[in-house]
Each structure stands twice: as structure tokens, then as C-alpha cells.
Nucleic acid binder design. Structure first.
Lengths: 143, 143
DNA sequence: CTATATGCAAATATTTTGCACTGCT
DNA sequence: AGCAGTGCAAAATATTTGCATATAG
């Protein structure tokens, strides 16, 4: 049994390489929404010869195959998420982590927007900002 | 009568310079949500000696004074908005323009999120993506 | 007059590209 | 074997920084 990534790559005429699978795996197995650099660093021990360029080129393909989605919470770099359903994200302003918000039904909100705009909607991205529970604790410690 | 920007700058110990006022004015008078480069280009005719560095430095101050908000719809650069109330934005995937969505009350949606997260919320940003009405027309023309 | 701001140029950071070599299929 | 993919280095793009000069207060 072939996994989804393997068959999708092959179907679209892309070659299945260890690098591509490894990059997708990093994204599939983390909830940290890593940037290209973070993916690169994560893979260094296992693939010491892998280049950042390969990470970027692979991300491009994974995006095209809709295997990942792109996030931009307002940092200078992009982050990537292998969960491709369109859920909101929340970003801690103190530690910078980005987490999924799952189990939200935004249908009503989206419908309201759809009915008020002349655009044909194709998607949306909801970002929330705040302080995570860990950072809230730290905040309250003296100094 | 002094305008808000002038007095706010002065109050916080920043000097009031023609450059700073001009940059804020560009943002206050447009609905295009320009990037730093777009602001710079807009000001070229009037302030031919202004440098991009000044645009970036001024944006930093305006952000600090909460006179502008920062947007990132997923481009490689940031955009800025002098409307600082937290309204959704919509981005046309064809022509790239970014427009305000006004008159939406997202309180219920935000409250739902607030009640489901352990974060102390400080803000949010809603981006919608689609095809604007102008681009929809163009789309349908033969070729 | 003094301290801050500007403008230039150089530095930094992120992402993209060109090309010789490698390795899937 | 053939062609797409990788890795390196260089380029492109966006943003930041250092510093000499200009200017607001």
C-alpha cells in the first residue's frame, strides 16, 4: 500500500525522492507549523546534505498538490501546515508558537461574508493572537 | 488645531517631520493597503529625496503609536492600513488588490474562540480570498 | 544649540534561480 | 539511458542597521 504523498507525486509526474517524503513527513508529524528553515534544521541530522533550496522547491510542489497549506501570522517568513482543512490558527505573542484551533464551525461567519461581498470566495484564513497558558504563567512570576 | 498624528508623535517624544506626516497621509487617504515600496513610490514625486529606510522607520513608529495596523495576506511583503479597527480583509487572487470588509460584527465568532482556547486573546486578523467582481468579468471574456 | 531624524550604503534575512552532477523510473 | 531532482552558489527581494549630515524643537 502506497501512501497518499507517494501516489500523488507519481500521478502528477513528480518523482518520489527521499527528500520530498522526508519534508512532507516533518510537516505531517508536527503541530509546530514550521518554517522552511525549521524544516531544514529538523532534517539536518538525518539528511546532512539536504539544501534549503530543496526544501523550498519541495514546498512549492506540496502546495501545488494541496498537501500542505501556507500560513503567515505576521512574521518575516512563511510557515507550513500539513493539515489542509481550513482551521483557524493562534499565535502566542510571547513565545511565538502557532497552534491549531480545531473543532470550530465558521460556516455561519463565512456565509455572512460571502453574502456581503461581490467577490467569488475561494478561501479564508483566520489568525488569532494572544498569550498562551505557559507564557501567562511565566508572566506572573516575579521578574 | 493639531491633527492626531502630530500630537501623538509629539506626546511620545517623536519629532514631527514632513516625511512622517506624508507617510501617514498616504495611508490615511488610500484604501489600497500599500506596502512600504508602494508608499515610497507614491511619495517619490513629492519627496524625491525620501529613502525607503525612512518609510520603514516611520512605519515602525506609526505601528508603535497604533496609528496603523499591519496586514499580511500571504505576499512576500507586508501591507499597512490606517484603519486600525479590526475589520476583515479580502484579497483578489487575480489582481492582488486588498479591500476592507466593513460592517461585520464578528463578536460571536471571536467569543466562541475565546471560550475554547487557553490563550488570553489580544487580537485577530481575518483574511478572505477570492476573485473580485472586475476580475470575474475579465475571466469570462474569450481569452 | 542639541538631540533626533533623514538618506545613503552596506548588512541581513528570506526566498528564488542557474547549473553541473546525481539518482529515480 | 534519459530526464527530473538535488545541492551548491549566486541572485533577487524585502527589511534593517550604521553613520554622517540635516533639521525640529
Amino acid at each position: 500500500m502506497e501512501c497518499r504523498v507517494t501516489s500523488l507525486l507519481r500521478d502528477k509526474g513528480f518523482k518520489v525522492t527521499p527528500q520530498r517524503l522526508a519534508i512532507y513527513d516533518v510537516l505531517a508529524k508536527t503541530k509546530a507549523h514550521p518554517s522552511a528553515e525549521m524544516i531544514f534544521n529538523e532534517l539536518q541530522p538525518l539528511y546532512p546534505t539536504m539544501s534549503l533550496a530543496t526544501v523550498y522547491k519541495t514546498i512549492e510542489i506540496l502546495k501545488e498538490l494541496k498537501l500542505i497549506q501556507v500560513l503567515n501570522v505576521g512574521e518575516d517568513s512563511f510557515r507550513y501546515d500539513a493539515k489542509t482543512d481550513n482551521h483557524p490558527h493562534i499565535n502566542c505573542c510571547k513565545c511565538g508558537k502557532v497552534e491549531d484551533i480545531l473543532g470550530i464551525d465558521a460556516t455561519d461567519f463565512i456565509d455572512t461574508i460571502a453574502s456581503q461581498t461581490s467577490y467569488r470566495l475561494t478561501g479564508q484564513q483566520f489568525y488569532f493572537y494572544g498569550v498562551c497558558s505557559e507564557c501567562q504563567k511565566t508572566e506572573k512570576l516575579p521578574q
